[in-house]
Design a protein around this nucleic acid. Structure first.
Length: 423
DNA sequence: TCTGGGGTCCTAGGACCC
DNA sequence: TCTGGGGTCCTAGGACCC
């Protein structure tokens, strides 16, 4: 049976979430900024029309922001995650199988659906449903492979006449669309690969689809080879209904202002590892390897640069914040070099083990701390319930390196105090 | 002054084994 | 003096994604 995939992608997701609760901004240009209000990470339609690029640093856009009256928001992940849940649960109701691919995208497996109903009509109805129930506009692309579904979605966004839904099941429609799309827009083709492809005379998605598969494998990799097959309508990438268990957990941040003091750095790293340990326990895993990194800013070319990381092994897998803090502190003692202006740091947890099924160490005298599990459970419970906030002294009490979030919108959907009022 | 954060997968090359 | 070939495992780094 021919496979049928649909990709549902929310339009300008973060910007749409912000506009939802601010009807006064309906036709105004809106951008959402990254952590520290550093870069533009989402743009409303009006902003895209102005030609403002994604990922650009905000300070370089100061003129544009003023001239066009662009409204800026700091990223409000609590709001976006909640709106995402609402969209995803509607999709889940409608489709036989669903893969949540990112906060604003989901693949649906619609194989066999065309036996009972028209695919295009089915997806148009789904789009309307999401719109009426959540207010978030989406576009949908339908195709026999995920990579083609991505391109169909791209076309649905780009061409107004499609009404936001494109059915790319027919091979002749695939050829026509692929000829119009630059190769760099293909899922899995990034900056480096597209540059190399251009050099080989491959400019459009159709060129890539028709390229010699052996040459692609030799010159690039099995990954791009798979992309070529997918462009030819052969489904190689399956729907992943169950998210795979994580291999690593990263907590890292750029600092709102540079750090030159070791104590401040230690506090920051302890905060990150605490957060990472919370995520670890949520996933019911223990980690045996911890990677700590600190670095200066690569953008300040005139400044002295230093970047280093250290992998450290624990004697046994752990999810105990105290043990992880200890190893992070020891790592910092090795890594730290005074005299630099540090811009970013982070902690990575690796080499996971199942927290429920522990492997004892026969010859080692190292033993996990007694009562560790109970203590961590109590800690997590207190911090979750908002009864209060318990934290380790190592984090410090004056977080001067905290994030800059000057344009934060209220938690409209996740905090009673912030519920929008209708008068 | 100010340039995100969190992930995955693949490959090449070195270490090591027989 | 002559110094193989095949395999595995690990790691660092590159490339990609949203």
């Amino acid at each position: 049976m021919t496979r049928v995939f649909a990709l549902v992608d929310c339009n300008n997701f973060y910007a749409s979430c912000e506009k939802l609760f601010r009807p006064d901004l309906k036709h105004r240009p809106v951008v959402v900024l990254s952590n520290n209000d550093g870069c533009v990470v989402a743009r409303s339609q009006e902003v895209k029309a102005l030609g403002i690029q994604m990922g650009g640093p905000v300070f370089k856009l100061a003129d544009d922001i003023k001239r066009h009256g662009i409204v800026c928001f700091s990223s409000n992940y609590a709001l976006y995650a909640d709106m995402s849940d609402r969209v995803m649960s509607l999709l889940e109701e409608a489709a036989p199988a669903l893969e949540i691919y990112s906060i604003d995208e989901a693949f649906l497996d619609l194989t066999g659906v065309d036996n009972c109903t028209n695919l295009l009509a089915f997806c148009q109805a789904l789009k309307r449903k999401v719109d009426t129930h959540t207010g978030i506009p989406v576009c949908i692309g339908i195709a026999p492979s995920k990579t083609l579904a991505k391109l169909a979605n791209h076309a649905a966004k780009q061409y107004k006449a499609t009404g936001g839904v494109v059915d790319l099941m027919a091979p002749e429609r695939q050829v026509r669309l692929l000829a119009l799309i630059e190769v760099a827009k293909v899922w899995g083709v990034g900056r480096r690969i597209s540059k190399k492809l251009q050099g080989l005379g491959i400019h459009t998605a159709l060129d890539l689809a028709q390229a010699d598969i052996n040459m692609i494998r030799e010159q690039f990799s099995v990954v791009l080879e798979r992309t070529v097959r997918e462009l030819n309508g052969i489904a190689c990438i399956e729907l992943e209904q169950v998210p795979p268990t994580k291999q690593q957990i990263i907590c890292s941040r750029s600092f709102a202002s540079r750090i030159t003091d070791k104590t401040k750095m230690r506090e920051a790293l302890c905060k990150y590892v605490t957060r990472a340990a919370e995520k670890l326990r949520q996933q019911k895993r223990k980690a045996k390897v911890v990677n700590v990194f600190i670095r200066t800013s690569a953008f300040s070319a005139d400044e002295a640069q230093y970047s280093n990381s250290l992998l450290a092994d624990l004697p046994y897998p752990s999810d105990d914040t105290r043990e992880l803090i200890a190893i992070v502190e020891a790592s910092l003692d090795t890594l730290w070099k005074a005299g630099y202006r540090y811009a970013k740091a982070g902690v990575m947890l690796l080499d996971f083990y199942d927290a429920e099924h522990e492997q004892g160490e026969l010859f080692s005298s190292d033993r996990p701390q007694i009562q560790s599990k109970k203590l961590m459970q109590v800690l997590d419970k207190i911090n979750q319930k908002g009864i209060g906030h318990v934290y380790f002294a190592a984090q410090g009490t004056a977080p001067v390196w905290l994030m800059k979030r000057e344009h934060l919108s209220p938690a409209y959907t996740t905090n009673w105090k912030d519920l929008p009022l209708v008068r």
